[in-house]
Design a protein around this nucleic acid. Structure first.
Lengths: 204, 204
DNA sequence: TTTTGTGTCAACAAAATTGTTAAATCTATT
DNA sequence: AATAGATTTAACAATTTTGTTGACACAAAA
């Protein structure tokens, strides 16, 4: 346990609270309490709730690439192998950041203006991923290794199959309660399931 | 345009606002304005913001069965046919209630105690759906019509593939912007995609 | 026409939440 | 130790949001 600066303690507590219940429901006093400081400290270091929120967003920006399957834009690895590692990485990322997707989706819905830097980042990034994947798909199709496929539909399939269980975890728990007792086992199960579905879709 | 009672105008406006931005971000004054009444009227008819919220939840309760693929608990229709209509119904339902899933997930995450009636309803309903589907799967497997499959994984696959695009629509828009210009066409596309994936998974 | 009850409004009150300040404390430097 | 600067605290202030009240209007019933 390393010693933490006040500023950092606040940032960490804010991160936790904003991700858990969102900007609107979060209370600056609750965040300060969780950080173990007076709420005046929060304003001293970050001026306003909104500026604190922006800092939290900034600190999460680099993670977004992984959220959007960034590992698909990669060196020349065969498609199936690449998809396998991408799905695996994606699930590992989600397991490490389980409420990040819901958080982003939510904040973008409740107040898009607050999230313009994020959406802009995602837009360009998603474009790159999608184009790179389409190029590789076309190539492997022409070599007869793979069925003709729209990269964006494929991306959406993978994103859906991986992310939904995390975004809607309280609902999914009601369907799969018993299976989810062991989180790691559940994730491993889903990885197999998703990869199986994707492979069946792509194989000629 | 039928004439609306003040009480109903408030309820409709509240429904819209709560679904759009959630309980925490919604403002009673904004709801009253949208309904075209003074905010004293809101308190006159519903006492508190929380009670108004409960009314909105109540009015949405019957819809939840459809959200959870309720049409899968049905007369004795062959499995593949049943899945086809279930996916189709589910997507139609989502198209008609695009922000209902995100709303429920969110409210359950930010304050589960507020949503206990909902979660209880979903739990029993999901149980029924899952058991009925598993029974039919087992039967068709024994007849050699279908590969051995866990009903809950199958349900999760369908739910994910259908619901994600709605829950995360602002994100999905960034990936599939051009395809989504025509909403109906996009939904039709997704229906084919999902059914294709599911059929490939199940066919021996 | 009086009465009675419901619905409406404007203004007010209370509560919750965010933001500020001045004085006190601590830390490092001279 | 004296100074300067940053940090902390407790008390306070401002703003936002929710909730209330009393006067008034209006319609139906007596």
């Amino acid at each position: 346990m390393t010693i933490q600066s006040t500023e950092n303690k606040i940032l960490v507590a804010a991160e936790k609270e904003f991700l858990r219940i969102g900007y609107a429901a979060a209370r600056t006093t609750t965040i300060a309490d969780a950080a173990g400081v007076t709420h005046a400290m929060l304003h001293y270091y970050f001026r306003t709730k909104e500026k604190l929120f922006e800092k939290v967003i900034e600190s999460k920006m680099e993670l977004i690439r992984d959220m959007m399957l960034g590992s698909l834009v990669a060196p020349d690895v065969p498609l199936f192998k690449k998809l396998e590692t991408a799905v695996s990485n994606h699930l590992a990322f989600l397991a490490a950041n389980p409420d990040l997707p819901r958080f982003f989706v939510n904040e973008i819905c409740t107040d898009p203006s607050k999230m313009e830097t994020v959406t802009e980042f995602i837009r360009t990034n998603a474009g790159k991923v999608s184009e790179a994947l389409q190029a590789q798909l076309d190539k492997e199709v022409s070599e007869g290794l793979c069925r003709k496929t729209d990269a964006r539909m494929l991306l959406l399939d993978i994103l859906s199959l991986n992310a939904f269980a995390f975004i809607a975890s309280p609902l999914v728990n009601l369907v799969c309660g018993d299976i989810m007792e062991n989180r790691d086992a559940f994730i491993e199960m889903r990885k197999k399931e998703t990869l199986d579905l994707i492979m069946r879709k792509l194989k000629p």
